[in-house]
Write a protein that binds this DNA or RNA. Structure first.
Length: 318
DNA sequence: CGGGTTTGACCGGCGC
DNA sequence: GCGCCGGTCAAACCCG
């Protein structure tokens, strides 16, 4: 769970060549929808005597952009392969070390939740595979029908006893239960943002680490998150609380959120952390970006988005 | 007063 | 069939 030990796979993409004339920063709008199209990408429709030269220059630029795009795609491919290789190695280790613990002497039925807890603390990705495989063999039909589930791990303050996981959605608690395999109570939530939303959430503290909340999501939201609709930061309060997020998805999704103050940062140990400080904000952004780029699915989607963006711009040009 | 939370009761699935 | 256990319900309660 220690991001500092991970290989830095952050995309240090060289976007500058894309900018023909403008030196305006593109950080915020780099991969998203730009507030307005930069004029340097717009085709000059005004007829001029230098139209042939401009056309040639644009062609040359297009070739250069295409080449850049190809290089980026290669970089992403290599990065994804490296990531997958490392992940597979880690999973092998996890399987070897975790097998005997996971299948202990007490062969209680349906102990998937506890297994997952033990497993996931050590590894964000694919940690459900062992238990879901077990469940698959026992009740395959239910697994097919079963709604898509995902899991999120939120590290909270040690003294924080609340079972609140802010994820950008509005939840209504409808039950709480103390389960057998975990002394900490498990809270049951339904999505109350949309009445028809079928998503449910279970939140329980990890057996191993009481400061870690394990949120299990069932189903998929049929509405946008509160952040998407309001633009506010009610959900993942990245601006106010230092956090790191890592995504690992392979059919199912695991999300890890570290909402505690960064232990590795010396500044964080100072009397009162100034989370609004620009350097802290930048650190958070970089940490988020770094974590996101570690996910092969994200990088693949990013590559597709970049490619699509370039194609779109090419189409607007020609 | 309306919406959210708490908490005991209830239900259904599963193992023995 | 019985008991255990997780999940859900719903009345009481709380709060703004």
């Amino acid at each position: 769970m220690d991001n500092s030990s991970w290989v830095d796979t952050s995309l240090d993409l060289n976007i500058n060549p894309l900018r023909v004339k403008s030196d305006a920063p593109v950080d915020a709008e780099r991969f998203g929808v730009p507030r307005k199209m930069k004029p340097t990408f717009m085709f000059q429709t005004k007829p001029s005597a230098n139209s042939k030269e401009e056309t040639g220059a644009i062609e040359e630029e297009l070739n250069r952009v295409s080449e850049e795009n190809r290089k980026l795609t290669e970089m992403l491919t290599v990065m994804c392969e490296d990531y997958n290789a490392l992940r597979n190695q880690l999973m092998d280790c996890m399987c070897k070390n975790g097998e005997k613990e996971l299948h202990g002497p007490s062969k209680k039925r349906k102990s998937a939740s506890s297994n997952n807890n033990d497993n996931n603390i050590a590894m964000n990705g694919n940690s459900e595979s062992s238990s879901t495989d077990e469940e698959l063999s026992k009740k395959p039909r239910e697994e097919v029908i079963k709604a898509k589930t995902s899991r999120a791990y939120v590290r909270t303050e040690a003294g924080d006893k609340s079972l609140i996981v802010k994820d950008g959605y509005q939840w209504r608690k409808y039950g709480q239960k103390v389960t057998r395999d975990n002394p900490s109570p498990r809270a049951y939530f339904k999505c109350s943002f949309a009445p028809s939303c079928p998503v449910k959430k279970k939140v329980q503290r990890s057996v191993d680490d009481q400061s870690v909340l394990v949120a299990t999501y069932e189903g998929e939201h049929n509405h946008p998150s509160m952040e998407a609709t309001s633009g506010s930061s009610h959900g993942l309060t990245l601006g106010s609380v230092p956090c790191s997020a890592s995504l690992a998805s392979s059919g199912k999704t695991n999300i890890t959120l570290d909402l505690t103050k960064s232990k590795s940062s010396n500044e964080a140990k100072s009397s009162k952390p100034k989370t609004d400080a620009p350097e802290v904000r930048q650190f958070l952004v970089e940490q988020m970006a770094s974590s996101l780029t570690k996910d092969p699915n994200f990088t693949a989607a990013l590559a597709a988005a970049i490619s699509g963006r370039m194609l779109q711009q090419n189409h607007t040009k020609w």
